[in-house]
Every structure is written in C-alpha cells, then in structure tokens.
Design a protein around this nucleic acid. Structure first.
Lengths: 334, 334
DNA sequence: CTGTTAGCGCATTCAT
DNA sequence: ATGAATGCGCTAACAG
C-alpha cells in the first residue's frame, strides 16, 4: 500500500541500506547518490514509517508525563515547557492524568509494565519505593519535577528558602503583622510546597522576633475563591495583618480580590506577595517569588533524554533558582 | 535481553501463535493451555513489547491532539475528557501545543506526514483545505472539536443559540439594558465563539425590540482581568447596564470582580450570565450557559476511534446540547 | 484447538 | 561508499 524504503531503493537503483543512510544523514554517502535518493523520495512522496523506525531502533521516541494536570496554572506551565522540549527533540509527549490516588498508583504501575515510553516525568507526585523499584527493573528512566525521592533525579526549587525570602521582604519593608494563606496540610496527594513555604516564612519571622499568631495562619482548598474567603476572615480580625503571603499566585489573586472588595488600596493598606509568578502576575503587578516553571518542564525533558543516552548518569539532582519579582503589590505599612 | 514471546512459547511448550492468542484473549484456546501459558508469563514476568505489537498491527495506538492548550480552562477541560477516553481504550494521547499560527500550520503538516498517530483531534483551530487534503491523503482521520470544516467530522455546540438563550433569559427577567463582554473580533487564531454568542444575544434583543447600543459592546483580550477592566467602563456609563452577558465564564469572573469592587450586590444591582460552566462557576453561583466540555473531549476520542474502524463513516457531525444553568447571579432588575 | 511460517519496514552489521 | 543479509518481536493466515 504505502511506499516503503524498498520502493525508493529500487527506483533509485541502490540498496535499502543506502536509503536508510541518507534518511538518517549518515556522512558516508556520496553526494551524487544522496541527491539521487533524495530526488526519488521526493517524487514518490515517501515518508518512513515511524512504526518501523521505532521498532527497529527499539525506542518509542516518546516521553510520558504523569501529573494532576488540570488543576493549577503552574502545572500547565510546566507542561508547556515539556511539550516545547519534546517537540524540539522530535519526541512525542504522552500525558497521563491523575485524578485520584488510586489512579496515580495504577498509572505508576502501568508505565513500568507497558513499555510504551522511553522515559517518564512525574510532576509534584511522590512515588513509593516499590514504584521506583518497578521502574528500575523495567529500565525506564524517571525524572521528578517539583518533588523528590532519594533514588531518582529531580528538578525542584527550595520552597523553604522561597518562603523565607517572601517573609524577609515583608519584614524589611517594616511589616510585623504578617499573615499566610495556603493549602491545607493534608491533601489527597500530600503536596508539600505550601507547607514548606510557610516554614520558610516562619523562620524569617523568628529570626526577627516577630510573632506569628494562629489567627494569621489560614488554609483552605487551593484556589482563588477559597483564598478570597480566607482573606475576608483575616481582614475582619481586630488586628488585621498589614501584609499577606500567599502560598501561590492563584491564592494571591484571591487575597487581592478580597482587599479590593473591602476598598483597600494595594499596597498602601495591604501588601500582598505570592509565589510562582504565573502569567497574569506580571500583568497585575503582583510581587511574587518567581520560580522557573516553564524551564522546570523543559529541563525535565532534557534530563530524561540524558538518562536515555548514558544509562549511568543516575540521580542528577537539579535545584532551580528562585527570584524575588518586585512589583507594586508590596510596600511599607502605614 | 528482555523476555520475548518465544521464551514464553518454549517454556510453555506451545507455539508463539498460541501465546499471542492468549495475550489477545482469543476464544479458541483451550482453558488448560491458556492456564499453562498464563503461568509461564507470570513466572517469567513477561510483558509484550508495545513496539512490536504496534509494528505488527500497523497501528500506533496513539491519538494526537492539537490545541492552543494552555490558555483557557475550557480547553483544559476538553483535554481531561480526551485523556479519560484515551486511557479507557488503552490509547496514548499525544499533545501538540500550538503557540503561534506558524506553529499551528507546521504541526498540521507534520501530523499528516510523520505517521505517528492513528488519528487526530483538533480543538478550536480551523484547518485549511490544503491541510484537510493532506490528512486525507495520509489516511489520518481527523475530528474537529469546537470548530468546523465541511469535509471533516466535528463536535460543536450552537454558540449562536447559546447566546440567544442567555439574552432570552435576561430579557425574561425584565432587563433591557444588557451589555456584552467578549473577545476581540480579530484574534491570532480567529476563534469565532465569542462573536457567535454575541450574535445570538443580539438576535434575542432584536426580537424583543430592545436596543443594543455600541457602548454596551465591550471586547478585549480573553481573560478575567481584561473583563474586569471592561466592566468598570460599562458601570461608569451614564446609563449603566443592569445585566451583563460574558462570552465565557472566565470573563464573567472579571465582571463579577468589578461589580464587587464597586460594592454592587449580585444579582440585585447587576445580573451576570456567563458561558461554558467551568468548574468554579457552580461554586460561585454563576448563572451560565452550560456546554459539555469534558464530554466534547471524550466523544471526540470516540469519534476518531470510530473512524479508525469503519473507514467509510466520514463526516459525522455532532452537536452537543446547551443548557441554561440557573444560579444566583441573575435576577430581575430593580 | 494449535504449531508453523511469512511478513511488517526499517536499521545495522558484514562484506566488498 | 554501498549492496546484501539479518534481526527487531509480534500478529495473522494457513495447515493440520
């Protein structure tokens, strides 16, 4: 049916080996025959079968990514980076969406057994030792993004340090009544970043002998709307905070919204600092702790691909830098 | 290296054909030998090579999806549906992200040439006749979601009718000063839904002899923040609208935000109706025109897979139903 | 029911 | 530099 490498070879009066060589840009082909083969390929409109290539090379040329996708802008941004990197290397990116812990485990297992991907990226989810063992046996390299495991390479940021810098920034501006809005401690997938960021902030407070009362610590489901509600609680306090650190920019948006609803001016009446630096943050002038989301995805692909080449290069641990993005949502308190 | 079907056959003392049969659940295998083969598979921890299976079957068992992903919650929701459907059929979902019109065209072309997917889903992007022709020649079935082409099957909703019903709803409540907040007419990818929804609303207005002045028609970049700004303009008018129809829920959130900032009560002082029914809308009590986003993705996969089986079943055109989700953001004007 | 065999379309030796 | 031969691991058709 479809034109194969044999058709091309016959037509160009060469062996299939030669056609294969020009296809893969091998140097040891004379310019003359290369031209001839290329011409035939063109005239026959020949396209190599991806299926056959992959089978012969014993590579799927695909990378899988496992994540609770469709929840947070930060995840989407990481995915963008992965897609871009994969496309640049001509790899396919296969997405596995995790909705529940049970599905997560099923996917962890399936990716080790099915041999459908050459490598794997896992975002924010922490695999168990048994999963790691299974992947190792299957020979599937895995790189963790925004999470860690002692036996696996990973790409992370220092959330504690990020929280520390957020706190530091507010303290330096002169704030002493600093509140925190973040995720609940126990979520279905036990994400830890919110908690870590809080720890960092608290550390900064402690170093400056600033108290952090329980009333300033608010947690709720991740999202703009819950954060908005929590902020209303904060601002209804007898001694409302003069500054709020939100565990993510999404939540910072909720804080901002609540402040606006109360007619507060930002930053005069309330300083707000977020975390992540998602796309809209710059637009809104939100001060935030920037982490390289797109890059985390892009380099994640890099890492898996590197593992594919040199099997030995295990456990490369990469920490991406954080950066304080100073904008107009923070200022000294009045 | 890895254990193959031959190893299993030898160990179980049967032919590879038989092993293949039990692997693929063929009925004509005696229970006894089936058990024996299964036991050997288990003991050898054999996993069939996905690569070899696909090559032999001449199927990639993958579906590609082309979209401007990472922009709108509605797209993400469709993707969720696709991932779920693909996973249910044991197909891989490969994502191709479009950032620019140039990249869109490149991906359209590549998916036809590279033979890496069995079928294709395209979200909200409209291919040209040449693209369609190329896919046809390549034998790649394509299903359009939220967009159309005369020669391709598609899954859509009636945006005009949806806009009409939104307008109708507001009119029935007694509103006569009805504004619209939507996307600009000319965007990079010429999405038409916002425009169509406006048309529908206008039609409802006309039928009821209600004027629609230019000042009530506001467009800006898609997003919550631009919508918020546009709404402030609307509400600063001498005769501000008593109701706003937003072309999407994302934009309705911006409208809601602006109203709250001005201390307006919803729905007493301002009625708001959106479109899509994204996850947060129910939470916020936003009245909206619901379209089945997840389902559009899920059935999109269904359709491509169907095309794969019966080549003849071309051009199935599916229109999903819209539904008015009545909640608490709309009420009669005062 | 089951064993045998012939591809699937390419990459990659090994000679030449 | 290049042609011929071999193998990748499985499915499916064909005998028996």
């Amino acid at each position: 049916m479809a034109v194969t490498i044999y058709d091309v070879a016959k037509q160009a009066d060469v062996g299939v080996g030669t056609v294969s060589r020009v296809l893969n840009n091998h140097p040891q082909v004379s310019p003359a025959t290369r031209q001839r083969v290329l011409a035939v390929i063109e005239s026959l409109n020949y396209r190599p079968s991806a299926l056959a290539q992959r089978f012969s090379r014993r590579k799927t040329l695909s990378i899988g990514v496992i994540a609770v996708f469709f929840t947070r802008p930060s995840v989407i941004e990481r995915l963008r980076g992965m897609e871009a990197a994969a496309a640049a290397r001509d790899y396919d990116l296969i997405v596995y969406n995790v909705e529940t812990p049970a599905k997560r485990d099923a996917i962890f297992r399936a990716t080790a057994d099915s041999r459908r991907v050459d490598g794997l990226l896992v975002i924010s989810l922490t695999p168990g030792d048994d999963d790691v063992e299974r992947w190792r046996n299957a020979g599937v390299p895995v790189v963790l993004v925004d999470t860690q495991h002692p036996a696996l390479p990973s790409i992370v940021v220092d959330d504690v340090q990020g929280g520390y810098r957020a706190g530091q920034h507010l303290i330096e501006l002169g704030h002493r009544r600093i509140a925190f809005v973040g995720d609940p401690i126990h979520s279905a997938f036990s994400f830890t970043s919110s908690q870590d960021r809080l720890s960092g902030m608290q550390q900064a407070l402690i170093e400056h002998d600033i108290p952090f009362c329980a009333a300033y610590h608010r947690t709720g489901e991740h999202g703009q709307e819950p954060a908005r509600v929590l902020t209303h609680q904060l601002l209804a306090l007898n001694e409302p905070p003069t500054a709020v650190f939100a565990a993510s920019d999404t939540q910072a948006l909720g804080v901002l919204q609540a402040a606006r609803e109360l007619g507060l001016r930002i930053p005069e009446d309330l300083s707000i600092i977020g975390f992540d630096d998602i796309e809209i943050s710059e637009y809104l002038g939100l001060t935030t702790v920037r982490q390289p989301l797109f890059e985390s995805g892009y380099r994640g692909i890099d890492q898996v691909l590197r593992c594919l080449v040199q099997i030995g290069s295990e456990a490369a641990h990469l920490e991406l830098p954080l950066e304080l993005a100073l904008r107009v949502s923070t200022a000294p308190p009045r």
